[in-house]
Amino acid sequence: MAQSTTDLADADSTDALFRVIGHELRSPLAAILGYADLLLESDHSLYPPQAVNAIEAMQRNARREWRMLRDAMIVIRSESGSLSLEMGAANLSEMAAATVVAAAKLAERRRVVVRCDAPLCDDIAADPNRLAQVFDNLLTNAIKFSAVNAGEVEVAVREQPGEVELIVADNGSGVDPSERERIFEPRYRGTRAGVPRPTGSGLGLTVVRAIAEAHSGSVEVGESALGGAAFTVRLPRDVPADGAVSSLAEAQMEIL
């Protein structure tokens, strides 16, 4: 498994540059998010009325930036075959509930009703941080693409023999059958009519697929009972040992 730095020098330099930038952006973002949290915890009556909105807008946008960065890093790693998993125990029903709570503000702003149907299930062997990203991306996506001003989203977790399913359904305009494969390609946004061009990296679904596949799982999109799209992620309870790919190339990068 020995890999020399020469391999890295041969690697796509844009790819390497993105990794460095990605890492370097984390500290400033941590500072922005940390100080915004601090301000919002303080007594709001101390601020002029527009200040809280302003801080919340900064926080929201810093989080968006953080998500884009996180998604871009996954796609870059996945494309270079260096997406690694940090295996632990993950409980999908607990994660579903936590994701719904975390997205409550976004849902409220977009007037979307989010339901969670995730009866308590057993833990599976998975990378909890990466899976949280799958939940987050699918739910954020569903909220954005649900019907305007009458949005409905349902997050469900179902136990199946040998695997667990996560289903995120919306009542938006759905995904045309001709686009159901391409929608997982980087930067492909689909042609859903009447939907305002969404903000985001355009990488969310690519990330979902990359992470699902790294867990030896899968993702597909179909029609939901709500009338829109339904994304189903299937994850095996136990990932085969070779499911986690080594990140040696990245190791070389980070030592520099």
Binding site: H23, E24, R26, S27, L29, A30, L33, G34, D37, L38, E41, W66, R70, M73, S84, L85, E86, N129, S247, E250, A251, E254
Partner: peptide, 26 residues
């Protein structure tokens, strides 16, 4: 600031008890 396993591995080998990634919540 590095999310990768590499950091964790190097860190645990060096003898650290725990890791926290940036950004972190209070």
């Amino acid at each position: 600031a590095h999310a990768s396993e590499t950091d964790r591995t190097t860190g645990l080998e060096s003898g650290a008890d725990a890791f926290m990634r940036k950004p972190f919540s209070a």
